[in-house]
Amino acid sequence: MRQNPSFALSDVGEIRRLIEQNPWVTLVSSTDAGLVASHYAVLLDAERDDLTIVGHVGKPDDLIHGLGERELLVVVQGPHGYVSPGWYGDVESVPTWNFVSAHLTGIPELLTPEENLEVLEQLVTRFESGMPQPRLMWAPPNDPEFVRRLEKGTTGFRLTPTRVVGKRKLSQNKPDEVVETVIVELEAGTSPYADPRLPAEMRRDLETRKAAR
């Protein structure tokens, strides 16, 4: 991802927040057969306060990616959306796309079966917790044999990135009043290509920048 100093996202806390709120990621590997991409959910490692993530892939994706043997690129995509040049007023301008994203790169560590079970349980707990009647991994009608059989079909991993590129492009290069207009247009649903979380992210960023002046 090409970096621009005006849009750089380097704060670890903010990137952790991005991962926490956007756990569905893209895994990319360069293999002898070419580029390979897969999509899985990940979590921040609960025992670390850095950008270490844990997750799993279904077999044989572990072999396809060469998991644990070569670099893995993890693409975390946050809120994003189209910004019309018409929102800038009567000035020369072109369309753009606002977004928040981070790329984490490193060689993942493969987890033991027991560690993988713990991560699988954490994933289920995380995403079932918001359901009206959560079905946790070990809860009936699942029995231990069923759960352990499922684990054998997956490979767990832990990735501590050795390279991180984060980008937050939220109209920071525009005057405050223009940013406010873009936020209002996005909140009104004017663009059909917008994540409804985007205007809230833009407002949070704008207020942070104002407070720092």
Rank of each mutant, 00 (worst) to 15 (best):
M1E: 07
S6I: 02
L9E: 09
G13V: 00
E14Q: 15
I19P: 05
P23E: 00
T26D: 13
V28R: 05
V28E: 09
T31Q: 11
D32L: 08
S38H: 14
Y40L: 10
A41H: 15
L44R: 07
A46M: 08
L51E: 10
V54I: 12
D62R: 05
G66Q: 05
G66C: 04
G66F: 06
E69Q: 10
E69M: 02
R70A: 08
V74N: 00
H80M: 12
G81K: 06
F99P: 00
A102V: 14
T105G: 01
G106L: 13
P108M: 05
E109K: 11
L111P: 09
P113S: 10
E114P: 04
L117Q: 04
L117P: 03
V124W: 09
T125G: 08
E128K: 09
Q133L: 12
Q133P: 00
R135S: 12
L136M: 13
M137E: 08
A139N: 08
A139Q: 14
D143P: 01
E145W: 01
E145N: 04
R148W: 10
R149Q: 11
K152S: 14
T155E: 12
T155F: 02
G156M: 10
L159S: 03
T162L: 04
T162W: 00
V165R: 15
V165S: 11
K169D: 04
L170S: 06
N173C: 03
K174D: 13
P175A: 00
P175Q: 01
D176L: 06
D176W: 02
D176M: 03
E185K: 15
L186W: 06
A188F: 02
Y193Q: 13
P196A: 02
R197M: 13
R203D: 11
D205G: 04
L206M: 13
R209M: 08
K210F: 07
R213D: 11
R213F: 00
